[in-house]
Design a protein around this nucleic acid. Structure first.
Lengths: 340, 340
DNA sequence: TTGAAAGCGGTACCAT
DNA sequence: ATGGTACCGCTTTCAA
């Protein structure tokens, strides 16, 4: 059983020609058998000999050669950025990936951190993906879209907050998050609202739109929004809590539950009553937020239809002519607990 | 400026032949120029014309064709499983990826969730990666290793708790985590120690070794270990906390900080004094654990040398003969706060 | 039922 | 300083 072959380093990779030779047939026949080609009839004994030879050699077809010949790949590229992917996204991609694999696509994540926009796009294009799904936090320019389509991508899909010219946009409008949070706070009578802006790099693509959404919602109600830069560190939170009185805020939307928990603890330590003096709202509906006292109010987010998305991609691949689709994936709702 | 070309759907992808035609040279020359081939001298005007033509057509080389010809790729494959990747791993991979890219490798994550072991391995092998880095939680059999090396992989590296025959093992021995936690508890005089076992699927590759490490450390000290199955849900924790008195434990290692926070809250709500009645230790050293009262004791984990790992891989690629390396990446240390 | 051969997009040797 | 061309591994007509 699989005793490691201590060959002199240079083990040559078996090709379909090797299989053919061993089975005593032509490469064509090997291809027919291994791909179960229905348009051609191969005798059972031959099929058997070919299969036998293949497993004996440990033959694995060469994807590059195959798709080179075919003129197209079934590769779906999923660039990933520097953003620490939260459980929500991870789950979403997991589903998407499963759905695409069911449709017989090869899904691959390509880490693009540290590449300039167009470098990254070129790198993706070299792989000749049939579809590219760009998550929020990675910027795709119209020019980038063009490079991709010109290199054969049938579907280019952005998940960012803004539709990109030429690409199909499945929008995740982060503004909704800010809007839900602030809406909730307004209903509960708050008017002077802080919005935490994480200082951590890479989060701006999320925090800026959330702030914008907060502003849009606050304005008509005559409420006031103050951005509050914050590091994800105890000292930073303590410092912010320290000057809380002079800020004169009666509520804060803390970007997400983690920043909310951090800030809430600091505020409590500084003697600020929650929700008495200041209401606190997070986002993500983490389990941990429910363990705090008071329990953390939050904005719950759901990503609709990862699976239909797989089918949408499949449709786009087959009918590339289609006009860009724009869809909103994000569903948000405020969850009232005790901190607001 | 990049007005979207509303072509009748079938835009043909430009090849090096197209570039050659437009520049009025041969394909060979195009290759020389675009790859800055030093072994051949091309006149400046020609170089210019070629570059001009390439950009004008939006030419991007075809990676598959290139590596088919070259006989090898520079692809490093990084299978990813169903396990919710924590920040520690994400950071580690980020670094590894950056390091490898600096060495001019193409790094790609391949989601293998829902594939049987050998299906997955075949799928990887089809891509003819030059190296494969298998994270913990994904099982690689010796047979799988053989398939990969036979298909041309020069370096197969496992990050799991157990070295795999034939592969280079960069071990992350999760037992250390349990050992550190229990060691800490023993020093503080605890003897009847519970170990939380998450019921969530996919965590067993981590939880089992941690339990084993706990047992190994407890035994010589005459301490007793009780596994405690727990769902990551408030009800499950409450239920466990409810029968805490009858368990007669004076300490618990809660798998990680998240489970620890969950359990600690439930215990407090059930009237169990922490650390008076029961000491609690988590793992991961999350910031959030420091916000609890009492502050959560934890096991800090560090993944040594992601960057040297990139260079190790590079070396392995160049000198494949090398005997399997086995190395321990994980550094753990207990951090005493207030919950123990 | 099977085989011979062309060709996918690049690269690199050998001529010119 | 350039061009012609064989070849990488695989699929797919077309012939036999």
């Amino acid at each position: 059983m699989s005793q490691l072959p201590k060959q002199p380093a240079e083990v040559s990779v078996p090709t379909s020609a090797d299989v053919a030779r061993l089975a005593g047939v032509s490469r064509a026949t090997v291809s027919y058998v291994l791909n179960n080609n229905a348009t051609v009839r191969i005798s059972e004994p031959t099929r058997h000999r070919v299969r036998e030879a293949a497993t004996q050699l440990g033959y694995v077809p060469h994807a590059a050669a195959r798709s080179l010949r075919a003129g197209h790949s079934r590769l779906v590229l999923l660039p990933s950025g520097h953003i620490p992917a939260g459980p929500l996204h991870q789950h979403f991609f997991q589903e998407l990936q499963a759905g695409l694999r069911r449709l017989d696509y090869t899904v691959v994540q390509y880490g693009s951190a540290g590449l300039a926009d167009d470098e990254a796009v070129r790198a993706w294009a070299e792989l000749r993906p049939v579809a590219v799904v760009v998550p929020p936090g990675i910027t795709l320019t119209p020019h980038g879209t063009e490079i991709l389509t010109r290199s054969g991508a049938k579907a280019v899909i952005t998940l960012g907050p803004e539709p990109v010219a030429g690409a199909h946009g499945l929008v995740m409008d982060q503004r909704q998050v800010g809007a839900s949070a602030v809406g909730h706070l307004l209903v509960r009578g708050r008017r002077r609202i802080g919005v935490v802006m994480p200082r951590e790099a890479g989060l701006t693509p999320f925090s800026e739109p959330r702030l914008a959404g907060a502003r849009q919602t606050a304005e008509p109600a005559g409420a006031h929004i103050s951005p509050l830069p914050l590091h994800y560190e105890e000292e930073s939170a303590a410092e912010l809590a320290h000057r809380w009185p002079e800020l004169g805020l009666d509520a804060v939307f803390a970007y997400n539950d983690e920043y909310a928990m951090l800030l809430m603890r600091a505020l409590q330590d500084a003697g600020v009553a929650i929700p008495g003096d200041t209401a606190v709202v997070g986002a993500d509906d983490l389990l941990l937020g429910r363990l705090l006292r008071p329990r953390l109010s939050t904005v719950r987010m759901e990503l609709a239809m990862p699976d239909p998305l797989a089918e949408t991609i499949d449709r786009l691949v087959h009918h590339p002519g289609t006009a860009p689709v724009h869809h909103d994936l994000l569903r948000t709702s405020a969850v009232h607990r005790e901190s607001s």
